[in-house]
Design a protein around this nucleic acid. Structure first.
Length: 257
DNA sequence: AAGCGATGTTCAT
DNA sequence: TGAACCTCGCTTA
């Protein structure tokens, strides 16, 4: 269940493994090159959209969590579950990678190739919204499909798509080139702010809450304005459910046109 | 106990 | 456009 915020948070959290030689294994066996990283040091981590890169000394491991994958922080001596694709551990802590789409050895060229295939990442401070805007003007298809296209914007997933389009008052099925500059600015600002919040909170919470409110107490169902909501949490209108860009989309028929 | 769906992507048709 | 891949928590019976 990973949109870009999850990966950026992981890139940060996994930095606790930087330093000592790591124990690297693949209890499940499917990451056949695990042995080659055993006793090697982690030099750094990086998040590019939904892609996670682990820089070892030497070597690069690329991880994509996909829909089901996750990293779990556990006690280093706890016996790994059978389906652990990769375990990274120090004397103090272990991280288990479960059910990823990808966990493989990459070259610098592979990383460069990925960079060339990804659009700007709202979580990258250097990201240039003008590049996205230019692409949208020529994009043939709905804005809802463009936002999920990783070559247009990197890191956006189905939840942020729904919430951000509500923020901008734009219906997901609207043609991308019909989105006004003002609407795009709201989309981009909203992506930046909400995804950054997602990194800090470790989850996607888009509803407004009172000052001092404990947001971690919100259930998943309570945390969003339109995504999977029966009614729009801003105005109460019944939420429209449709398919855009091959995924289920949610829209407020009153606020999104 | 069984079934369903999911914050993703790629490949085949 | 659909199936495959990767797994599990929540819903339904």
């Amino acid at each position: 269940m990973a949109e870009g915020h999850t990966i950026h948070r992981l890139a940060r959290d996994l930095q606790e493994l930087i330093g000592p030689p790591l124990s690297v294994s693949s209890p499940q066996g499917k990451f056949t090159e695990a042995r080659r990283f055993n006793r090697k040091r982690l030099r750094g981590t990086a998040a590019l959209g939904k892609h996670l890169l682990l820089y070892f000394d030497p070597g690069i491991v690329h991880v994509h969590l996909g829909l089901l994958g996750k990293f779990v922080r556990i006690e280093p001596l706890s016996p790994p579950r059978l389906q652990v694709r990769m375990r990274l551990s120090t004397a103090e802590v272990a991280w288990d990678l479960l059910a990823p789409n990808n966990c493989e050895v990459w070259s610098e060229d592979d990383v460069e190739n990925l960079r060339s295939r990804l659009g700007p990442d709202p979580l990258d401070p250097e990201a240039d919204p003008e590049v996205v805007w230019q692409v949208l003007e020529r994009f043939s298809g709905p804005i809802g499909a463009a936002l999920l296209d990783q070559s247009v914007v990197a890191g956006v997933g189905n939840v942020y798509r729904a919430e951000v389009l509500l923020d901008a008052g734009v219906h997901p099925a609207r043609s991308a080139f019909e989105v006004s500059r003002e609407q795009f600015d709201v989309i981009w600002d909203s992506l930046r702010r909400r995804m950054a919040e997602g990194v800090e909170e470790g989850r996607i919470i888009t509803v407004d809450t009172p000052e001092g409110f404990d947001r971690s107490s919100l259930s998943e169902a309570e945390a969003r304005n339109v995504y999977k909501q029966p009614e729009c949490r801003r105005c109460g209108s019944p939420v429209e459910v449709l398919t855009v860009g091959g995924r289920t989309a949610y829209a407020c028929p009153k606020e999104q046109t």
